[in-house]
Nucleic acid binder design. Structure first.
Lengths: 233, 233
DNA sequence: AATATAAGGTGTATTTTTTACACTAAGCAA
DNA sequence: TTGCTTAGTGTAAAAAATACACCTTATATT
């Protein structure tokens, strides 16, 4: 949410909660504002929707401006329209979450192009500061949603590299669900879903026994799933 | 979604999918338009959000104008903002679903106050015609959401009278999930959740053995539920 | 070459949950 | 009194979830 443009028919904006997973931590992309209001605060990437622009398109545009990436998994999750959520007038924000493959891609999050941003950072959700506007609330809602969603839809794979180990996958579930999972049970259950393809390839560059790599297999998933994933333990 | 007002800063509207349950059927409240565009078509109750009005407030207002009721269970579920969804210009709609206790209350749905509506009707979801604008799509999305939600949150009770029988409750689950459930298993599971209060009272006015009445017990629910309901069979 | 280190990988027994399934009881109406 | 209609109930089998510990493998260190 930013300063209001000079002319507008509609005070909509889109804000994006962009998740990444790296070093065993769930992170989100924040920008540091260098403009009033909330100068110096961290905020979610977001901007006004153009008068002739679908919301979905605006969300993709903001994601591209923040990360340089296109074709990213993205989902609308809630619309915030309380009075007083923006100090300069009534603004309605449609919020999206998105998921980026960060592992082996630390350079994602270039200097943001938006004029009101000093820099962009990947912030671990453990270290989240209070955010500008009502963005802390937006973040919390997004986190609830993905926590729920990861338990029955294969969104975890959007955060992992194409080839990943079962340990990486488990760590991701653990950090999202905020709960320790049993290694043997996790693997048994995940493999039983029969949605992964085991590769003839191993992890590289580790100083211990290398783990097998797996891919998410969309075709198997489509075949096997009228049922849903379910992860709690 | 209606004709555009003369002046506006923002083209937001709110549309409501208002569910009711009666005669073993799930119904939604539709209005029949008597104005272009879509003159004569059925549509969801909805209207523009005032420039100084929270979205939530607008939703409650529309619900009140459509039903005469206040304090109804209501939840925002999606925002529709494609270009071209409204023939007269770009309109963004925040959609809500709401749930009304219809059983023993057939008079809910007075003549709607909105000028563009000829009449309001409770339409069984089995008989749904194609709706004006993109309202069919909005309805389908709302139905997906409540289907999902009823499986793990106690929203069914919002559609039943305060005192209900287990058979009514089961019928409601069956019609929402679109799936026949086993009577013994349903009762066993529902009672095991320990969220109902069994009353010393029976159904009246039926020409067969009267069933016991139950109430949803919010206090028990709050106590017992960090876990969630789960109904599939 | 031997050893230490760190994560990878695996199976079984127990408990809990889900499922399938059919008859008697109660109340009203004719 | 009989017939009709829905209410109400239990058990056994199958499936899913849980708890739990040790050997293997690759690399790094001495």
């Amino acid at each position: 949410m930013e300063n209001l443009p000079e002319h507008f028919d509609s005070l909509f904006s889109v804000d994006c909660v962009i998740f990444g997973f790296d070093e065993g931590e769930l992170k989100i992309l924040l920008i540091e504002r260098n403009e009033a209001p909330f100068n110096g605060w961290f905020a979610l990437p977001g901007y006004f929707v153009e008068p002739i622009e679908a919301i979905e398109t605006a969300a993709q545009r903001i994601l591209f401006e923040s990360t340089g990436l296109k074709g990213i998994f993205m989902e609308q999750f809630y619309t915030f329209g309380a009075l007083g959520r923006h100090p300069q007038g009534r603004v309605i924000t449609v919020a999206y979450y998105a998921m980026i493959r960060l592992i082996g891609n630390k350079e994602v999050a270039p200097l943001p192009t938006a004029h009101f941003a000093k820099r962009a950072v990947w912030m671990s959700i453990k270290d989240m500061p209070e955010l500008a506007f009502d963005h802390s609330r937006i973040f919390r809602k997004s986190f609830e949603k993905i926590k729920n969603k990861i338990s029955y839809q294969p969104i975890a794979f959007e955060l992992l590299p194409e080839k990943f180990t079962l340990t990486q996958l488990q760590q991701l579930y653990e950090v999202v669900l905020n709960k320790k999972l049993d290694k043997r049970n996790f693997r048994k259950k995940m493999l039983a879903y029969d949605i992964l393809k085991e590769l003839d390839e191993k992890q590289k560059g580790v100083s211990y026994r290398a783990a097998k790599l797996y891919k998410f297999d969309k075709r198997k998933y489509a075949k096997n799933f009228q049922k849903e994933l379910s992860f709690t333990r």
